[in-house]
Design a protein around this nucleic acid. Structure first.
Lengths: 87, 87, 87, 87
DNA sequence: ACCTCGCTGTCAATGC
DNA sequence: GCATTGACAGCGAGGT
């Protein structure tokens, strides 16, 4: 029987922990999917109001890229300041 | 000036609504990323405890497929029951 | 027997064509892998000569992005010219 | 000026070699992309002929795995034979 | 030997 | 309904 095999391979504690881990991942993935659905709903609402969702997605993407570039620039700046003993 | 162009193209209300939409999408995407990070952390913890994360991911995937199949089966059943006037 | 099942499901011609398709995809994937290996070899050689491969990869990526942007700009230009009846 | 900085950092020969390297990587990546396009075309053709491309991709994948397993088995066999002085 | 990161291949969502 | 495009997960290579 498979349950026996499992019993042989893992201690009770290990199996419990495994079960907990699986449960918590599944719960988190569900949350993630819900947030994703929520995002879709916002786009759908915007579309219903007459906005061009493609352009909207572009705006989001560009702002994300800008943010990323700023962060990279900051990181470089920090590196320089650190190198100069300014931090 | 670009701001003038924008002012010409959209009403103040439309621009405010657009701004709100962008903000709310960005907020949701941030949440989503956080949940994703959380998931990674759980996998990392499991790995640190000696679990094989690849196997773990497989477990999650299989359970998700099972769930999906059950849901599909339920949907088909509902369709049949509906067709038979049983619901 | 499985071969019988296959025989029942597909005509001889269809099976031959399928076999040809699989063979040609496999051949192409092999080619692709070889080119990939070749690329790796070039990076390895560059590294052996003292170049920073990470920086090198960045150069390649940036040039690709530039190329893409140029192409997009050209496409937009073409659109405009076309709209103006200049082409 | 940037060109001066580059001139200061690298010898003419080093810059030429770098240029060659970049060119050859870009050429290879282009080839790779072409082969990739070719593969897509074959799948598209198969689809147009009525084949289920998802199933087709599965076939390719399974055959690749089989090949890999065979190669691994062969490698192990070689190791044993070598160890036994049979090669 | 591990870990991080880039790449590829897959899947779903959108527009035509 | 299909074809294109974008997001995501999985894999492999490279660095530490």
């Amino acid at each position: 029987m498979d349950a026996d095999a499992a019993a042989a391979a893992l201690t009770q504690a290990a199996r419990d922990k495994l079960k907990q881990t699986v449960m918590s991942i599944e719960k988190l993935e569900e949350e993630k999917a819900e947030v994703g659905d929520h995002i879709k709903a916002v786009y759908a609402e915007a579309k219903a109001m007459g906005y061009d969702t493609k352009a909207l997605r572009n705006v989001i993407k560009l702002r994300k890229m800008d943010r990323r570039e700023r962060e990279e620039a900051d990181a470089i700046l920090d590196t320089y300041l650190l190198a100069l003993g300014e931090i």
